[in-house]
């Protein structure tokens, strides 16, 4: 359906997105995951035809969408990261305007507004001014504004930034319903791993403008299938100890959080006995010890050497 081939974008000579290859099949829910500054929003802007790529191609059903942006625009709805709403107008007035720019008129427009408001759970507050809404309600309206013309592809750029867990769940449920019930194709960007895990069939992990891994959740987790994740809680932690842990054979990554040490190591590396030995050497008391199955967060750590929140 939608494909990008070697898509790149540079700003003032700096490459923000590099050779991005991405595919979006009809009815799929695809996640674009990466830390802040990874190039997700630039990618979204290029795919939604708001900015032109420096090089590469975007095709929509085989048609060059850079030359013919209408191919994508006519079937897509974009939920921007910023709240693109008139704060001094009501939700109804906002949707009336955004519907009218898609040439919806009369009863058709009223129906679309009503459906969008009900879908995001704002029907009872439609006459209130947007500036009186909570952050979560504004985010929901931001999504509603992109749904009025019933797009086949919904592109969401970090739609849950800075909102409470309840509104976040509401948004995630709504997006899931759109995909599963209405068959809307979803491209969802986020730096929240759990959101993408929950919503998406396939994932693209981006860092420094490049896709560093892509596939289904299981495919991505299989990257760490030969590794174990071990969480160790200690009564104290010093640098020398961590440095020595890193030198243990089979240890790939370590991450320190206060008195907790997270270690990703090859399976069968006899790590436990070596760790116990080291704690005795450094006179550190081992309080808790846990082996976990690696998550996508660990995959990201493994691939980039840093966490998503870095």
């Amino acid at each position: 359906m939608l494909e990008t081939i070697n898509l790149s974008k540079s700003f003032k000579g700096k490459k923000v997105v590099q050779d991005l290859n991405l595919y979006l099949a009809d009815g799929e829910s695809v996640g674009l995951l990466g830390p802040n500054g990874a190039g997700k929003s630039t990618t979204i802007s290029m795919i939604s035809t708001l900015i032109k790529p420096t090089s590469g191609r975007i095709t929509m059903n085989g048609v060059n969408a850079i030359a013919k942006p209408g191919e994508i625009r006519s079937v897509s709805g974009v939920v921007p990261q910023e709240l693109a709403l008139y704060q001094e107008l009501s939700a109804y007035e906002n949707l009336k305007f955004f519907g009218s720019i898609y040439k919806l008129r009369g009863k058709e427009l009223e129906k679309a507004i009503q459906q969008a408001l009900e879908f995001v759970g704002l029907d009872d507050r439609k006459k209130d001014l947007v500036k009186t809404y909570s952050g979560g309600m504004k985010r929901r309206l931001n999504i509603a504004a992109a749904l009025l013309h019933r797009p086949k592809i919904l592109i969401l750029d970090e739609p849950t930034v800075g909102i409470d867990p309840q509104s976040r769940n509401h948004i995630l449920e709504a997006v899931r319903a759109l995909n599963q019930t209405d068959g809307t194709t979803i491209l969802y960007t986020s730096h929240y791993m759990e959101e993408v895990e929950q919503l998406c069939d396939r994932l693209y992990i981006m860092d420094h403008g490049k896709v560093i891994a892509a596939g289904t959740k299981d495919e991505l987790l299989s990257i760490l299938s030969t590794e174990n994740k071990i969480k160790v809680e200690l009564n104290k932690l010093d640098e020398a100890f961590v440095e020595q842990v890193k030198t243990i054979e089979g240890v790939h990554k370590t991450e320190v959080t206060e008195l907790q040490l997270k270690i990703i190591a090859a399976k069968g590396s006899n790590l436990i006995s070596k760790l116990v030995h080291l704690t005795e050497q450094h006179q550190i008391q081992l309080l808790h010890f846990q082996t976990e199955t690696p998550s996508l967060e660990d995959v990201f750590l493994h691939l980039t050497g840093r966490t998503l929140r870095d």
Partner: peptide
């Protein structure tokens, strides 16, 4: 700046 202009650009307007 608010992003409303972009919404209009993406519309048939």
């Amino acid at each position: 700046v608010a992003g409303i202009w972009d919404r209009m650009i993406l519309s048939p307007m």
